[in-house]
Nucleic acid binder design. Structure first.
Lengths: 143, 143
DNA sequence: ATCTTTGCAAAATGTTTGCATTGGT
DNA sequence: ACCAATGCAAACATTTTGCAAAGAT
């Protein structure tokens, strides 16, 4: 991978002719250094704690924009709590195990799972753009 | 399958020493005849239209109770929109394709996918209780 | 009679929108 | 100068909770 995610994001947004201000930059930077999914509230809190408080609405708008351009993925882990993480430019992605005891979100990837979904989409005759796999159970520490 | 889902639900709740009133019965009946996932609002609307209006809070409480006993599954289709469907007593389950164009929720099952998740959970050394797979894309009609 | 279930209303939570101001180019 | 981006506050949608009344056993 020649480009980092951050560079890729900047390239895409610049190509779209968008200007870029502080809030957007802060959210992008935060997502860039975060390995796994974050909730919007967590993003807001982190930005405030790091001394750059940012409006909630701006955060949601930035996330929506990034999702629209395929730069961020939304992970639905439950009712009323969406989480967000950067999408790899190469299309690689991981999935999540939500530990029902400690609440930890553990990321993993699995080629077998991807293959299963690929052949499944062919069998069904549908075009699958995205897929979310959320496992719920006990993580290694809690089990 | 010797027992219908409805009978199974009644057996489990009776074994738990719970009484059962009208609202609960209505929600159970509705889920029993519904093949796929429904939102809480859809449940409320359907009950009202069929002449048995039922409090929103009761609907949520019934759903929460049924989930707790493993009788119903929650499908997270987005932020702030959960859908609910009955869980098969045998542990069989299906997953969903959410069509991004027409909004249809298409159910499917796939042994290959189940196998992939099984071997994955072994590889990771975690205990997986439930899993949600939500595909997003275009359904056959919209593609 | 007791204890659960129900329904209403209110609150909590998470997300979106309107609008005036700021800021990038 | 123009138009996008931001922040605030308010609107909005969904889900949860408190409490009194009704219902089940």
């Amino acid at each position: 991978m020649a480009l980092t995610w951050t560079e890729h994001v900047h390239a895409v947004l610049a190509a779209a002719g968008l200007k870029h201000g502080g809030a957007r930059e802060r959210v992008i930077e935060l997502l860039a250094r975060e390995p796994c999914a974050l909730s919007a509230v967590a993003i807001e809190d982190t930005l405030r704690e790091q001394g750059t408080p940012t409006g909630r609405a701006s955060i949601y708008r930035v996330l929506e924009l990034l999702i629209e351009y395929g730069l961020v993925e939304r992970v639905a882990v439950g009712p009323g709590q969406a989480m967000f993480e950067r999408a790899d430019p190469q299309g690689e992605h991981h999935h999540h195990l939500l530990c029902e005891q400690c609440g930890a979100l553990v990321a993993f990837d699995d080629p077998g799972l991807e293959r299963a979904i690929d052949s499944l989409s062919q069998r069904l005759g549908v075009r699958v753009e995205h897929h979310d796999v959320v496992l719920r159970g006990a993580c290694q520490r809690c089990d």
